[in-house]
Nucleic acid binder design. Structure first.
Lengths: 146, 146
DNA sequence: GAATCTGGTTCTATCTTAGAACTGGATTTG
DNA sequence: CAAATCCAGTTCTAAGATAGAACCAGATTC
């Protein structure tokens, strides 16, 4: 990500993460990759994003090591975009965003998608922030140091 | 959040969350609120953000119920911005971003801040995505339905 | 009471996104 | 096998978001 105030020098991991993926579209593209999309046209159709923006974002995310391109899985001459391990490391971020949205942005009974465990078909458990020895923590139990 | 393609109608909690907080600055403002900042000037000095953008963002986040304004804690005539329970619900999102950044965006030994448990001073545990019955899940163990 | 601080508002310039047209290679179809 | 269509982009213009500075009025400090 260029241009804007750089958040890189912050010494804060949150700021560095947002420097990499904090534009309007990147996390949605990453979400779609987790949902199985791989082809340029799949991302574009699913998101309703302009092709120019998608192209720029995919290029940047690939440069940052979040995506890589591989030969298309159907044997055609095209290439597909898949998440690297670094990209897959963003799964808790996507889950956290999903759960916050579920809690606060949908009314009871409103139709929405769910994230489930493939085996049991049960919704994934709520994410919990915990201490090293397993206690559940709310934000006021924590502190940023350094 | 106005203007851009609205992500609200998506039926996807991730998209709705990003509709609310997916601009360049909101999560950083929210991070600073978790770090204890309350005053307009504190946010502005800490972030190095233009006052016009900060003003617009704080107003929008307040309208969305993520922040509320309260009388200043020092008894002056000013007001302060504090997170609502809805805003505090974003703590796992901030922690997830922090942990991804720690894992992938800092080199070994590079100085950075840490999130610790106030009591024990130990770093907070890694977030884990789990099934309803407690198994640890990677993204390929999960599926979006609906 | 003057100086300074505070929390904005307003303005211009630059970057990001929206949307459409264009392009050349790949694939499909008749 | 050639024409039609699909695919993955590139390029362009217009509108919105951000960067940065100037301005302003009320609050606070000295």
């Amino acid at each position: 990500m260029v241009k804007r105030v750089s958040l890189w020098n912050a010494g804060c991991p949150v700021a560095r993460s947002l420097d990499a993926i904090g534009d309007w579209w990147s996390l949605l593209i990453i979400r779609d990759a987790f949902d199985g999309k791989r082809r340029f046209g799949e991302f574009q159709n699913g998101l309703g994003i302009s092709k120019g923006v998608l192209s720029t974002r995919l290029r940047d995310l690939t440069k940052r090591g979040i995506f890589e391109t591989v030969p298309a899985s159907d044997g055609s001459a095209y290439r597909e975009y898949v998440l690297t391990p670094k990209g897959r490391g963003l799964f808790p971020v996507i889950v956290a965003l999903r759960q916050w949205g579920e809690d606060y942005l949908f009314t009871d009974g409103e139709a929405r998608s769910s994230l489930v465990d493939r085996d049991k078909r049960a919704p994934v458990a709520r994410l919990e922030v915990k201490s090293a020895d397993g206690r559940s923590l709310v934000w006021s139990d924590t502190q940023v140091t350094g």
